[in-house]
Write a protein that binds this DNA or RNA. Sequence first.
RNA 1: GCGCCUAUAGCUCAGGGGAUAGAGCGCUGGUCUCCGGAACCAGGUGCCCAGGUUCGAAUCCUGGUAGGCGCACCA
Length: 557
Amino acid sequence: MSVLEQMKETLKEEIRRAVIDAGLVHEAEIPEVHLEIPREKAHGDLATNIAMQLTRIARRNPREIAAAIVEKLDQGKASIREVQIAGPGFINFFLDRSFLTKVILEIDQKKESYGKSETGRGEKVNLEFVSANPTGNLHLGHARGAAVGDALCNILTAAGYDVTREYYINDAGNQMRMMALSIEARYLEALGKECTFPEDGYRGQEMIQIAQEIVKEEGDRLVEMMDREERLSYFQQVGREKLLAKIRQDLERFRVTFDVWYSERSLYESGEIEEVIGELKEKGYTYEKDGALWLRTTAFGDDKDRVLIKKDGSYTYFTPDIAYHRNKLARGHQRLINIWGADHHGYIPRMKAALQALGYDADQLEVVVTQMVKLYQGGELVKMSKRTGKAVTMEELMDEVGVDATRYFFAMRSPDTHLDFDMDLAVSQSNENPVYYVQYAHARIASVFRQASEKGLAASLEPEKLAKLELEQEYDLLQKLAEFPSEVAQAAEQLAPHRVVRYLYDLATEFHSYYNAHRVITEDKELTQARLALLASVAQVVRNGLKLVGVQAPERM
RNA sequence: GCGCCUAUAGCUCAGGGGAUAGAGCGCUGGUCUCCGGAACCAGGUGCCCAGGUUCGAAUCCUGGUAGGCGCACCA
């Protein structure tokens, strides 16, 4: 637990005790004590609304209640410098400044671990994201999913969850055949043979490229292959490998890696699909109609029942997916988190229904839906079309915008905002671009340290020296640094990576403001050493925070 | 028609029961003998509409309106 968290716990306990001592209400009636950081600095470092919450039970006006509580409070116990009653009945606490310099020691001690917490208590969480079909390259929307998913994994891990990062490979089903047909057409085309492109084929450039590679590697020997099915199976196999390799390569460049790449096909091979159908039948949630096997998902709030086995005997996409989710749970994950694009959100109720039919709790599956991304370039909306395969690929995005800016821009917004991605802004190396603003804070500090070491100066952690940090802005910075672990924990609880980005931006703002107003390296050696210690802490937290969202913290830029 | 997401400043977005609703961009003016000006400081307008719950609503509920996305024996 961080120093701030410890202090808050102590203070909460102290408030509870004071409420009881004041004889306001019975112990069992006390609601949970909330401590919040007030927006307004004049309202102290921490505030509680407990007096207002108690109005109904204690049947007195909140300011009176607050006064009674304050009277019983032992201020020394929780590093409190001053207590005020304000507004409708808030109790505002002002912290003892010396307490806050402790955060510098804590950061120095924990280094890259500062920000971690135990709120997740080691709970096993499976986070599945991207999971794009191996039928083409990754695009804009996948990039958002990758940025959000990876940041969430990092944040949940930091908050003490045991996270498995997983990619589900849809390598079975119709789309794989379509992929093979598309490559076949491109292959024949590359050899100058007559062919018609399949109507719903994949028209992306990558298909042409793969076909050309195959021509290079195999020549025209596949044309001679008498058995077309055999040929298609070859294209399917090779296409899968090549496309998957490219996906993996793009993701790695984007700094995203997975613990598990789970193949849909393996569920066919292991018999788990048959198994799960058997289980659903056994539990009585299936029925036959029109030659198909249905799952009664309406029993769990879905709009309509869903087909498991089509009348041609094949499975719908849904069926292996049920087996897959069951598999993830069977592997010991208490919690499943999926990152899905908005175009799949209609799928959520049936998946939750299926899990309930299997006897699981609907809440064990949480789906973070990332809304659509609109790309703007030169002030114009960049049009995309799935049908023609014309779309901005993740690779192009990385080439043009860069990984840092792309990841920052996606992580910066709440997943459920409909995002306007301004490429000109993301590319611009100017003050308009928020990525550089945060990175610049880090580079600037690194620069100060280079200057300092030339002069033989280094940070000092001696309490007498740290006590020289007496400016209001230094105090604010220290407090901001102290909040970092709970910010991360909150981002984890709310599955909201943008909170971390927000925090970093605010921290950078406070730092830049401070840096502009005060010199770090001065004639006063002890003060210089103390300020260097403060800056080292800021740099460490910026680094740790950027790491969570997958953005680099440069020493120079 | 039904479902999900969204609606906050000119634009892009935070805030999601509490005290005077914030930030960036853009606009205007200012800071620089000094550690990196990709910086800092100052200045303006705003919670889609109507009801309801509450001591208190931008926040929760209901009903509208507008936009996005879904509504397959496709994946």
